[in-house]
Design a binder for these strands. Structure first.
Lengths: 228, 228
DNA sequence: CTAAAACTATGACATATGTCAGTTTTCCCC
DNA sequence: GGGGAAAACTGACATATGTCATAGTTTTAG
């Protein structure tokens, strides 16, 4: 089977700081899982006994509120480690993770993570760096949520989807999210998201083909985000 | 002068994981600073060459947006380390820090932090734990911002101020923020914040004495937050 | 102690956004 | 390929929230 030692994905996360021996142990006890679009990796409030290393596909990390709405806090794709925060803090997960496309992930029992934290300072610093980055991004999201209006946040979301997941040969965004998911990223009602997509389309900024969305006027979107 | 080795404040943050020798070095090179209410500790975009350990007083961490509004992301008080994220990621600060009450802080040059990160795994894990906690809180803020309305967030803010900073002998909140700061915590317009304070007062949930705010009906506020 | 500045408060109004209801389209699964 | 479920869309409407203008109040500085 595939060995962590040779896995390219590892290069993108803290596992790259693990020693040969550590990786060997991880590789021997890891479990490769296939997760279908829509299925959960884990749920809010669950006790996580390991972390998930994403080989393929995209996951949404979200939190459900009293009124039944989901807020998507982060989209995680190839190379990201899911669940590290909960495992490190030894707390229940504060977020749910669901696949938004078919996924292939490696489940790594937490013992390996906790051991390496104790014994491998490089690994710990690496984890720390990633978490520092996540924290900064979270701060940015907070500021955006409170200071930009829904249209601006929608525009920003499309630019984000392009930058992080790219476009296909025909110029459509590779990651296709349902309108509801888009609304939950942006933090608005599904109907509002749909209306704004229609508006952007009418203006010639986007083109739509079923679920697929293509960006036509990137500059216009950027200007809107900046408030021009 | 005061020595870090004997400082109680240290118990509340990652510095408690430092060894005697490390602390000695920190203590020898630290600089105690007094910061008046309203003055900055550091500004967004600034390169930080050290972290600030809060001995006394409260600081607001905020980010300015294009439209001139500030969003307060966190209030930090006794025991918190400010600037650790930027120092660790070796990036410019993404937030500004200003004193909202008179403060006494210790400035610790970053070398000590970075050295201990390399050499003291316990320290690193301790920092990691704190950052994991901050990240979780940030996620919660994101969800609150998108799923609760302004009234609910205002109610939550008062409960937060009570829980974290307490009440004085007369039952007023110890930390007095300007209406503008309250609005910037909640992410709303100052006028809206004022109106809601008036409304809560009219309902008998709060009492006001100049800038000072006292909570009279904690349960009513909690129910509002929960959506009853 | 007084004048100016900063902050707080309130009203009137505009508008962005959410909600509900109903229709149309797309997507699957048998 | 057809029927049914889910998703996408649209309109009408309610309302929460922001904006602007103005007045009152408290704090600060000289």
């Amino acid at each position: 089977m595939s060995r962590c030692e040779n896995c390219i994905v590892r290069k993108f996360n803290a596992l790259r700081a693990m020693s040969k021996e550590e990786l060997k142990k991880v590789s021997d006890s890891k479990e490769v899982k296939t997760i279908k679009k829509g299925e959960p990796l884990f749920e809010e409030g669950e006790k996580l006994n390991g972390v998930y290393c994403v080989r393929n596909g995209v996951s949404k990390l979200s939190k459900l509120s009293a009124n039944g709405k989901d807020q998507i806090v982060k989209l995680a794709s190839t190379g990201e480690l899911l669940g590290q925060r909960s495992v490190i803090a030894e707390e229940f997960s504060n977020l749910s993770a669901h696949a938004v496309s078919d996924m292939e992930v490696c489940y790594v029992p937490k013992e390996h993570i906790l051991n390496s934290l104790k014994q491998n300072p490089d690994f710990t610093v690496e984890i720390l760096r990633h978490m520092a980055h996540d924290l900064k991004e979270a701060d940015d999201v907070i500021v955006n949520m409170s200071q930009k209006n829904v249209k601006q946040r929608m525009a920003e979301a499309f630019l984000y989807l392009k930058d992080y997941f790219g476009e296909d040969a025909e110029g459509y965004l590779v990651l296709t999210l349902s309108r509801e998911d888009i609304a939950n990223v942006v933090g608005t009602a599904t109907e509002s998201a749909i209306r704004i997509i229609s508006e952007f389309k009418k203006k010639g900024w986007l083109r739509i083909s079923g679920k697929r969305i293509g960006i036509l006027e990137e500059k216009a979107l950027r200007d809107l985000v900046e408030g021009f």
